[in-house]
Every structure is written in C-alpha cells, then in structure tokens.
Simulated scan of single mutants.
Amino acid sequence: MLDLYTDATPNGLKISIALEEMGLVYNTHQVFLGGEQSTPEFTAMNPNQKIPVLVDDGLVVTESGAILMYLAEKTGRFLPTEARARAATVEALMFQMGSLGPMFGQYLVFAAAWGNKFPPVTKRYFSEVSRILSVLNTRLEGQDYIAGDEFTIADMAVAPWIRLLVVHPACSTLPLDENANLKRWWARVSERPAVQKGLMNPEPFAPKKQFEGFVTAVVGLGELHATS
C-alpha cells in the first residue's frame, strides 16, 4: 500500500494526479502546514519538512519531481522509454521544478501571504511568472502536451500550477488568455477524470485555516521558521 503525506498545494496535488492517472491504490494523510510538518514523525521521513512524501512499503521518497519519476518507473507509464521523448519529458519536468514552481511560489508569497506589501517585488515575480507562462506557450506550439504528443508526468507537474490562474484570486491577472496554446492545453488536461479527481485529493482545509498554514510556513514571515 502507498501512503501519501500531502496537502492541497500544487506540489502535493501533482502526486495525487499521478496516483489517480496510474490507477494506484493509496492512503492520503493530509498535513497541516501550520506546524504538522515539523513533528518528529514527519521530520524522520523528510528532514526538509516539506510535503509531499510518498511511502511505498517502507521506502520513503521525497521531492515531488523524484516521486513522479519513481511512480512512472514503478508502473512503466507516463515516462517514455525512447531517448528523445524521455529527455523531453524529464527536461519539461525539471523546468517546472526549477522555474515555474519556485517563481510562482514566490509570487504567491509576495502577492498573497505578504498582501502585496512590497509592490516592486510582487511586480518582479509577476513579470517572471508571465515570462515562464509564455515559455510554456511556446513549448506547446504544434503539440498537445508539454513534452510532445503524449500526456506525461511533465503535464501532471505543471497542471496544479496552471490551475491557480483560474481558481486563486491573486493569480487572476496573470496572462492565461494571452497564451492560447497554454489555455487550450489546460482545457484539455483539466477534462481528464483522473486529473479532476487528483486535484480534489486532499480537499483544502477551510480557507482561513489553509491560508493560516501557508503564512505560518513562509520563511521570514510566519512564526514556524522564526529564530531567536
């Protein structure tokens, strides 16, 4: 049995999508990011105190990109074996891990957690996320999915982040309509039943609690990482 320790964040939901797409049976353990990731039990699984964490019969895997690759290799699905297609998929996954996720995350910190207290910084990350969205739009020119014509773990990694453009108030002005290829990709991916199911597992805590956890975990703002 697979055990997923996670929350309703983009990095967590990408694993839920993968597990649903792969048809795997798993238990979901929702972690409140206002402090539960700092418990001795969770820290023993991941000293970095971040979700998601996957436990497969005693084997612990952390880092969402590594978990996606582990699951793809475990099932033999959604990660091509042909060299060019595999390289394109891994490249696109690393682009999400190294660019889209970190920059989008910083935008949310300054636009939401910090309440746009520092407008020039918010603008910097807004501009960078906008640029990254245009890169994804270019990647999608002439193909249905992020890494080519097949749905892969790269699409699973990107989907929860693009979803923020249509569900998160702080993201509503980011340029989705201006990136037609990306908008069509999102419409295509969001219609997949397994994606829909994965995006709802786990369901977020009540809005006030979910936001509290987000703010608490922000380094330099929340008390979770406060130093004496």
Rank of each mutant, 00 (worst) to 15 (best):
Asp155Val: 00
Arg86Asn: 09
Pro119Tyr: 10
Lys123His: 15
Arg77Gly: 06
Pro80Ala: 01
Arg86Phe: 07
Ser130Asn: 09
Met97Ala: 15
Glu63Leu: 06
Thr138Ala: 15
Gln96Pro: 02
Ala226Glu: 14
Arg188Met: 03
Ala112Asp: 15
Leu13Asp: 02
Val166Ser: 13
Ile15Pro: 11
Leu33Ile: 14
Val135Glu: 13
Gln37Met: 02
Lys123Pro: 09
Lys123Trp: 12
Tyr125Lys: 12
Val135Phe: 13
Arg77Thr: 08
Ser130Val: 09
Glu141Trp: 02
Thr39Leu: 04
Ile51Asn: 00
Pro169Arg: 06
Ala85Ser: 12
Arg163Thr: 14
Asp56Val: 04
Trp114Asp: 15
Val60Asn: 04
Ala187His: 12
Met103Arg: 03
Thr89Arg: 05
Glu223Ala: 12
Val189Gly: 01
Arg163Asp: 13
Glu73Leu: 08
Asp149Ile: 00
Pro10Met: 07
Leu54Tyr: 03
Met103Val: 14
Gly23Ile: 03
Ala194Met: 09
Lys117Ile: 06
Asp149Ala: 12
Ser64Gly: 14
Asp149Phe: 01
Gln30Met: 14
Glu203Asn: 06
Ala112Cys: 15
Ala111His: 05
Phe110Lys: 07
Met45Gln: 07
Leu13Gln: 13
Ala112Val: 15
Glu73Met: 08
Ala113Leu: 03
Val129Asn: 09
Gly98Ile: 09
Tyr5Cys: 00
Val158Trp: 08
Asp177Gln: 13
Ala88His: 10
Asn116Gln: 13
Ile15Asn: 08
Ala217Leu: 06
Ile132Lys: 03
Arg188Phe: 01
Lys197Gln: 13
Trp186Cys: 03
Ile67Ser: 00
Trp186Tyr: 15
Val135Cys: 12
Ala217Cys: 08
Val218Arg: 03
Ala92Phe: 09
Glu191Ala: 11
Ala92Lys: 10
Arg124Trp: 12
Lys197Trp: 10
Ser99Gly: 13
Glu91Asp: 11
Val25Phe: 09
Thr227Pro: 00
His168Asn: 15
Ile132Tyr: 05
Pro204Met: 01
Ile15Ser: 02
Glu73Thr: 12
Ala180Thr: 12
Ala18Tyr: 04
Asn116Trp: 06
Pro160Trp: 03
Tyr107Trp: 07
Gln196Ile: 09
Tyr5Met: 01
Ala87Thr: 12
Asp149Lys: 08
Val129Trp: 06
Arg86Trp: 05
Leu100Gln: 14
Gln143Asp: 10
Pro175Asn: 08
Phe42Ala: 03
Val166Leu: 11
Met94Gly: 01
Leu59Tyr: 12
Leu224Ser: 04
Asn46Pro: 00
Lys123Arg: 15
Met45Arg: 10
Phe211Asp: 08
Met69Phe: 02
Tyr5Trp: 11
Pro160His: 05
Glu141Pro: 00
Lys183Gln: 14
Gly101Ser: 14
Pro52Asn: 00
Tyr26Ile: 07
Ser172Thr: 15
Gln37Pro: 02
Ile67Gly: 00
Glu203Thr: 10
Gln49Ser: 10
Lys74Asp: 09
Phe118Gly: 01
Trp114Pro: 00
Arg188Ala: 02
Gln96Met: 11
Gln37Ser: 02
Asp3Thr: 14
Glu223Phe: 05
Gly222Asn: 05
Leu165Pro: 01
Pro52Tyr: 00
Ile153Ser: 06
Glu191Pro: 04
